[in-house]
Design a protein around this nucleic acid. Structure first.
Length: 174
DNA sequence: CCCTGATTCGC
DNA sequence: GCGAATCAGG
């Protein structure tokens, strides 16, 4: 991919908005975060405040959390069953990698409790983050679970249980 | 280990 | 100019 005027402008825009190099690379597509950083320097755009400080430190800092800090909280009633219906698949412009099934059946296994999610946004998902959608894709508060997902699995261990239900266990659950 | 930006340097 | 490799850091 080459740096067309459009791509450069998008880069400038996103960079000024505070997105990280990797997030920008994801949105532009076809380039690595290194490419983005390199370009930023060549354009002599203002670097990030403190070295190493990074967006994570600047970010809103997640939520103070009423009670559950971050460790898996099985006691929580936050069953995150709030998914109203993802309706369409492959939401949002770019990012071909991330696309989830349109049809989901929540009629079974209401016993599975899911711990608090990291509330990640589309651009923050990686191969190790849970891509379970939460909320209405058309609304602002829409986000993804984002908890750690084992072995290239698209979901964390909790959501995987909701996603992949053995037919046998399926019946018994009812 | 995951992620961040910064720098270097062969292409 | 480009960006992978590498470095430095949280």
């Amino acid at each position: 991919m080459n740096w067309t005027d459009e791509r450069v402008e998008k880069l400038k825009k996103l960079w000024s908005e505070g997105l990280s190099a990797s997030q920008i690379a994801a949105q532009l597509g076809g380039v690595s975060r290194n490419a983005v950083i390199g370009k930023v320097h060549r354009l002599s755009l203002p670097g990030r405040a403190k070295a190493g400080g990074t967006a994570a430190a600047t970010r809103p800092k997640q939520r103070p959390a009423t009670s559950a800090p971050r460790a898996p909280n099985y006691a929580s009633r936050v069953t995150t069953r709030t998914v109203t219906r993802p309706a369409g698949a492959t939401v949002l412009k770019e990012e071909v990698e991330v696309d989830f099934v349109a049809e989901q059946d929540f009629s079974v296994r209401t016993d599975v409790v899911v711990p608090m999610s990291r509330r990640l946004e589309l651009t923050q998902l990686t191969e190790r983050t849970c891509k379970w959608p939460i909320g209405d894709p058309l609304k602002e508060e829409f986000h993804f679970c984002g908890n750690d997902s084992p072995e290239a699995s698209p979901y964390c261990t909790f959501h995987a249980r909701l996603a992949y239900q053995p037919s046998a266990e399926r019946r018994r659950a009812r």
